[in-house]
């Protein structure tokens, strides 16, 4: 007892002090290591392909002596592999991913031109997923076992089976071609027009992912609803709304945030399909185009971009965890 009291005294307000900083530093270290290993995979994957690297990079193009010399010089293909890797990484850290074979421009420029559309698409879809998913999850959890819960769950299961290319063609068929409410093609000019153009694509993109957030919200809420501290709060005469807000939803946030973090990379990748379906000029369609036209430097850069986005977003979620759950700051892993 005395020992417990002493323990309760120390370590009290240490949420963002020494231990907290060490935690963040550890996370950053892990992030750097993951990115480093991922970059190895992205770069050296090229060496998995049997044969001569020059002819790999120039697949489908005329291998003129001039082109061979240019590619060899540009990628340092005559250098040892680790040297090539170092050059690539150092360049990438400076925003230089080499030159695109198809556009004869810097890869960074090519990607930069197309980034806004993809980001806008992902943001719009993300907001939709969060609102609809969390909303559906809450409705289902609060009506657990009743008809509304069943309907919500069945709805989510059906939505989860509509891949974005199916969603795209259905939305185009109905709302763009038949009803003519939305454009079928392109991303528009200016902010307002862009939002308008991206309504259907963002819906098509969001459909599959709503189910993840919805189910996690539901099960996390249901789990909390069954907790004894919720019963205690109820027994103390708090209104149901207050109990739900302060003790159920608040405590259920952690898993919801976690899943949302995992979604980000999935959204960027899935936008390749939506962009292709709606003829949007984003990095997703650029990726497909580059694979199609054998422009490997662009592929590498985009893959690295997606991976980085995933790792960074998840590191942010990790670092935020103690704000939501004080126990994780203390390293008391218990739930």
């Amino acid at each position: 007892m005395a020992a417990a009291q002493a323990a309760a005294g120390s370590g009290a307000h240490g949420r963002f002090t020494g231990a907290g900083l060490r935690r963040v530093a550890g996370k950053l270290g892990g992030l750097a290591l993951t990115l480093f290993l991922a970059s190895l995979l992205v770069f050296f994957s090229r060496f998995l392909v049997p044969g001569d690297p020059v002819s790999f990079l120039l697949r489908g193009r005329k291998p003129s002596a001039e082109a061979v010399a240019q590619v060899t010089a540009q990628y340092g293909l005559d250098l040892p592999p680790w040297q090539q890797y170092l050059d690539w990484v150092v360049g990438a850290l400076h925003g230089d991913f080499g030159r695109s074979l198809q556009f004869r421009q810097d890869v960074a420029t090519v990607i930069g031109d197309r980034l806004p559309v993809t980001l806008m698409l992902v943001v719009m879809a993300g907001i939709g997923i969060a609102v609809v998913g969390v909303g559906a999850g809450i409705v289902a959890a609060l009506n657990r076992g009743k008809a509304l819960d069943r309907v919500t769950l069945i709805g989510l299961t059906v939505l989860s089976a509509i891949p974005s290319f199916v969603g795209s063609i259905v939305l185009i068929s109905v709302f763009a071609v038949q009803l003519g409410w939305f454009p079928t093609f392109g991303s528009g000019d200016g902010f307002g027009d862009m939002v308008y153009h991206l309504v259907l694509p963002s819906i098509a993109l969001a459909i599959v992912f709503v189910v993840l957030v919805g189910k996690v919200t539901r099960s996390s809420m249901v789990e909390q609803l069954g907790r004894e501290h919720v019963e205690v709060a109820t027994s103390r005469g708090l209104k149901r709304g207050t109990v739900i807000r302060r003790h159920v939803f608040r405590n259920a946030l952690g898993p919801i945030l976690t899943v949302s973090g995992v979604l980000v990379a999935g959204l960027i990748v899935a936008s390749t399909i939506v962009e292709a379906a709606f003829g949007l000029s984003g990095i997703g369609s650029l990726l497909v185009q580059s694979v199609d036209r054998l422009d490997f430097p662009v592929v590498q850069a985009i893959v690295m971009f997606v991976v980085t986005a995933f790792v960074v977003v998840n590191a942010v979620v990790d670092v935020l965890e103690p704000v939501i759950d004080p126990r994780s700051a203390a390293g008391a892993g218990a739930r």
Binding site: V269, L287, V303, V306, V307
Partner: peptide, 23 residues
């Protein structure tokens, strides 16, 4: 665990697209 961490950063569709780019 470290290997899994790295692979998690590659969404499956992305890895598949990369495989197509290579092979």
């Amino acid at each position: 665990g470290r290997v899994f961490d790295v692979l998690f950063a590659f969404p499956s569709l992305l890895l598949a697209i990369m495989a197509v780019a290579l092979f």
